[in-house]
């Protein structure tokens, strides 16, 4: 465990291209088994800020902290504005409307990405910033590891990345390992989530959809120079395409979790951490030892 003696915690991101392959299941289980076999100080970070649902698996959790996430949204003072439209040209997101003949200038809050370009653009000091709430960060104490922290985006806001960044800038000084439960897909929130991860666990399923979406994510992570390993969840279903793909692209398989109907019904009841089967434990033991192998 030399790598754990560093001050900086070791970060594992759990991602997938396709939704519903088992990111949350794997994240929750990984935290549980890492706390059992690797390090007690393991934190679960729910980065799927649009629909954070890791909490469902911890019915006995207690909330220990709550913080609001703010964004600075510009505001134009029409008294000072000369209607030069420089800010409009700089704005990438069409969020500013300036109409010189009628002396009208306004920022549309729902389109603004808070990049701050307009403030730099304005030569007349007509633009100032106001705080707008876009979501919140909740800390929970659970029975496992050092708990769970989740980001929650306000409904209607499109600023996932800002909430994820705020979530990551939280102080986790007592955690040695952090597990990021990433949102599905390959879009900005996923990129933000995996950007500072030391290892990315990709969860996929042996179906044509799983393979296709996995390949998109693999391409993305290659571009980001990330060390990755794949967990094939629900193995036994579908076909062998995924194994062929992984072999062709030299991507290590960390483990395969066979499809089990009883497990699925346990999941549906939110009880995956109760009465854990020995076989499940074995799968994750293998996965964890494989992760350790690849990070060294």
């Amino acid at each position: 465990m030399n790598n754990l003696s560093k001050k900086e915690p070791f970060k594992i991101a759990v991602a997938s291209g396709k939704g519903g392959t088992g990111k949350t299941t794997v994240s929750v289980n990984l935290q549980y088994f890492i706390s059992k076999f690797w390090s007690e100080k393991v934190l679960l970070l729910d980065c799927d800020v649009e629909e954070p649902n890791d909490l469902i698996f911890f019915p006995e959790s207690e909330i220990t902290g709550n913080k609001e996430v703010h964004l600075l949204v510009p505001f134009i003072d029409t008294q000072k504005c000369t209607f030069c439209r420089k800010c409009v040209d700089w704005c990438e997101f069409n969020a500013i409307v300036v109409i010189p003949p009628v002396k009208f200038a306004q920022v549309n809050q729902s389109l603004c990405h808070s990049c701050g370009a307009c403030i730099v653009a304005c030569n007349n000091g007509a633009i100032s910033e106001n705080k707008v709430s876009i979501g919140e960060i909740n800390n929970y104490k659970t029975q496992i590891g050092v708990g769970l922290t989740e980001g929650k985006l306000k409904i209607g806001s499109a600023m996932q990345t800002s909430v994820i960044k705020a979530l990551k800038s939280e102080d986790f000084n007592n955690a040695e390992i952090i597990i990021y439960d990433a949102p599905p897909g390959t879009s900005c929130p996923v990129v933000t989530t995996v950007s500072d991860a030391d290892f990315v666990v990709l969860v996929t399923e042996p179906t044509p959809f799983g393979v296709y979406d996995l390949s998109l994510t693999v391409d993305l992570l290659k571009e980001m120079n990330k060390t990755t390993g794949v967990i094939v969840n629900k193995s036994g279903l579908g076909n062998n395409e995924v194994y062929e793909y992984l072999e062709q692209n030299n991507i290590p398989i960390l483990g395969a979790i066979p499809f089990n109907k009883n497990y699925a019904s346990k999941y549906a009841q939110g009880n995956i951490l109760k009465n854990i089967l020995i076989e499940t434990e074995d799968f994750y033991k293998e996965i964890i030892s494989n992760i350790k192998k690849y990070i060294n």
Binding site: F93, N94, V97, I99, V102, F104, N108, L111
Partner: peptide
């Protein structure tokens, strides 16, 4: 995004 407000801007 913002095509509608840009178009409105043009109209005004």
């Amino acid at each position: 995004g913002g095509a509608g407000s840009k178009a409105s801007e043009k109209m005004i």
